[in-house]
């Protein structure tokens, strides 16, 4: 029953987010996709379009499985996403969550969708902890002027047939 609630809760949240986004759609704007940093490996654990659309489902499923059942498979684990997608740049700097250069926030800043992961979870691989600037509490993302347009949203979430 708890699981049912969680699934349902997510749908409610998604519907709410979609409604919020719908109100801020600017149809005349040019389609500019966010610049997403490239991952370390050749290929993600799932096809890119599936990840774009469903990464939150997978993360959430994995989160509950790990938390409550001790399942520690790596495929859909947040830790592994971070390990692959958050890297040092040429200057030896690492982007923090909230920076446009951080894999997660590159898109989330753009879409104006806040996430509640990195108040607790490490936003960079363990070996890079200590590198990168400090995150200012509560100022993790600035969503001003980041309203997404309809085409960009479609492009980001459409799953190829």
């Amino acid at each position: 029953m708890v699981l049912w609630f969680r699934k349902n809760l997510q749908n409610i949240m998604l519907a709410a987010i979609a409604m919020l986004l719908a109100t801020s759609v600017n149809v005349n704007a040019e389609v500019v996709a966010p610049v997403v940093p490239k991952g370390k490996g050749e290929q993600c654990v799932e096809p890119t379009d599936v990840m774009r659309k469903n990464h939150m489902e997978m993360l959430k499923h994995q989160r509950d499985e790990t938390m409550h059942n001790g399942i520690r498979t790596k495929k859909h684990a947040l830790k592994e996403c971070i390990a692959c997608h958050v890297q040092e740049d040429e200057k030896g700097q690492v982007a923090r969550f909230g920076d446009d250069g951080h894999f997660c926030s590159s898109c989330h800043n753009y879409a104006g969708v806040n996430v509640d992961c990195f108040q607790c979870h490490a936003d960079r691989p363990q070996e890079l902890i200590g590198k990168g600037h400090k995150i200012k509490p509560h100022h993790t993302a600035d969503f001003k002027d980041k309203a997404i347009n309809k085409e960009a949203l479609q492009a980001l979430t459409e799953v190829s047939k």
């Binding site: 708890v2 609630f5 969680r6 349902n8 809760l9 509640d116």
Partner: peptide, 10 residues
């Protein structure tokens, strides 16, 4: 307090 919806649904 931002998680009130959790308290109201679970």
């Amino acid at each position: 307090p931002d998680r009130l919806i959790i308290a109201a649904t679970i």
